[in-house]
Design a protein around this nucleic acid. Structure first.
Lengths: 320, 320
DNA sequence: CACCGTTGAGTTACCCGTAACGTTCCGTTA
DNA sequence: TAACGGAACGTTACGGGTAACTCAACGGTG
């Protein structure tokens, strides 16, 4: 007991005793067992469960980096869960991670299985839903309006005189942010007199090479597509390379637009038309909300981190 | 007690009792507290501490993805630690994570502080050191010989007729894999009659833009450099873009070589000369060794996952 | 010198799941 | 019917840290 007091620097012991305790700690290489502390219910754990769809997509890796670095400064640890974009994986991960009594959870996306939602409510933990902006979150939410970001891009492209646009992305069983961007995009294009003449949703990962061959499929046998919107920058880079390889001049023959503003864009002489989102900041903000909630500070339940359209030079720079 | 038996499907209860227990579990939304199980010492936890330098570098994100996916299939969870390439961060993270009684640790790199090493020995847990190949690991090791990979690249470049090569990378206070690649590279170049005329180690992150401006610095005021070796592909891409922007023809005027073979390379019409490493596989292998050790299977203490030189087209394709 | 407050240190009980052991209630068999 | 054995279920104790409490020693005060 006295040792416990010394280690917690709680006071109520003499200097001589402190020395004796510390000497034993050094001699034994003693490390306190935090499990016991949390288990006894006196304190919360310093685990935060963090579910992320995948890390192959750079943007999610950046979000996680933002989260973990910020949590680290508060002495908290991330317990990772990669859900591969499925609610089943997420549900099973939530069940497991809750049994470890985490202090809170950070989840990607606003769509969760009914059972997952129920478990989260029962657990009564702080939960931050990130990525999608969610005006009625389970608890807290940090993200951006993906519909709006797609809408803005659609309106922008039409304003440049594009008329027949295509889309290349990937498909998942559940609604997600990418489909919201596509919805916003289509609405803007059609509202402004353009047409989304073809949408391609590949059963593949949303990375470089699928962007390449997806573009080939999209353009196969048609000459009417004057601009392509991609699910993200990686696919757009793939598409850009495909077009270049095929001898198409970008942006003269065809326009290319992505989403996410990958770091590699900063060195390309032809700036990719995209939408900038501060992924690192998103993660940090999510961690900050979590920490604020855990210290009982007042917390907004919904934070919009916004986005910024990058005009770039892979689309025309004025209406023709 | 009977409830415990039912939930563990241990047997020794009637079907009627089972139904009653399960009904209560559903009604209460009961989730077992795994902390108690582990705490009582009857079982190990299913945490694996995973320390990674950063996630901004795509290769480490891929390694982590490989680790976490594989651990997930065994019902284990990663507790993440981002060390920012410093031994101090690693040591403090190790101290914290050990207090959570993890089943094992996976650490990046072979260099750890003396105190960290001591804690790891005291803890007596399975430890996998990844990234560097480590013939005398603390416990187990999965990686590749970075010296050799740098050596092979050096020899390859000289065999193509390059004579005065430069290097662009970043510096850290501790020795790491990148410095080993550079050592191997220099040794090969000098052993084959070439010269490493300038080495630039930036105080920055090893990403695209530092590769861009680092190349500018490297080439400032000199005409003798005929080839540049970069710490990784991201920096090499940055350098490639700088050279192109400045009107240099790659590979006619200057050769460019990177390391890591990033996914984006798969769509570039000009294949980056690099060194392929299966980062995902490295992570999976590390997780597999950990699981094998935890189930008392015989485990090799050192696994070389190898590398493959990618000739690419950012260097000459034959000696001149 | 009796009394009291303070400081330092020890004791007890609790958290929850489960190993180990104990008890009850059957049905079966000689 | 007594004896026995196994199935089903209950009780106790433990793990490590700490809140809450108790106790001992000591110095100061009237």
């Amino acid at each position: 007991m006295t040792a416990s007091r010394v280690l917690r620097e709680e006071g109520g012991y003499s200097e001589k005793t402190r020395q004796k305790v510390m000497a034993q700690v050094d001699a034994l290489g003693y490390l306190p067992n935090r499990l016991a502390t949390v288990f006894s219910g006196d304190q919360r754990s310093t685990f935060i469960g963090v579910s992320i769809p995948e890390l192959g997509n750079e943007v999610f890796a950046q979000v996680l980096e933002g989260i973990d670095r910020k949590l680290g400064t508060f002495g908290y640890q991330s317990v990772l869960g990669l859900t591969q974009h499925t609610m089943e994986e997420e549900e099973s991960w939530i069940r497991t991670v809750l049994s470890w009594q985490p202090a809170g959870l950070i989840l990607t996306g606003r769509y969760h299985s009914a059972r997952a939602t129920e478990m989260l409510r029962n657990a009564g933990l702080p939960v931050v839903e990130i990525w999608d902006l969610n005006s009625s979150p389970l608890d807290m939410s940090v993200g951006l309006d993906h519909f709006d970001s797609g809408f803005d891009m659609g309106r922008y492209l039409i304003s440049l005189g594009y008329e027949s646009v295509g889309y290349v992305g990937t498909s998942h069983d559940v609604a997600n942010a990418a489909t919201e961007r596509l919805d916003g995009f289509c609405k803007a294009v059609e509202g402004a007199g353009g047409t989304v003449v073809k949408q391609l949703c590949l059963h593949d990962t949303a990375t470089y090479y699928p962007g390449f061959y997806g573009t080939e499929q999209l353009l196969a046998g048609r000459r009417d597509i004057d601009c392509i919107y991609y699910q993200n920058d990686a696919m757009a880079f793939g598409g850009l390379q495909y077009c270049t390889a095929r001898g198409l001049d970008v942006p003269r023959d065809i326009g290319i637009a992505g989403w996410g503003d990958l770091p590699i864009a900063s060195v390309m002489r032809k700036r990719l038309t995209s939408c900038h989102v501060s992924h690192l900041k998103l993660g940090q903000k999510a961690a900050e909300l979590m920490m604020a909630r855990l210290t009982n500070e007042p917390v907004p339940n919904c934070v919009d981190i916004g986005f910024r359209l990058i005009p770039g030079s892979t689309v025309r720079n004025m209406a023709i």
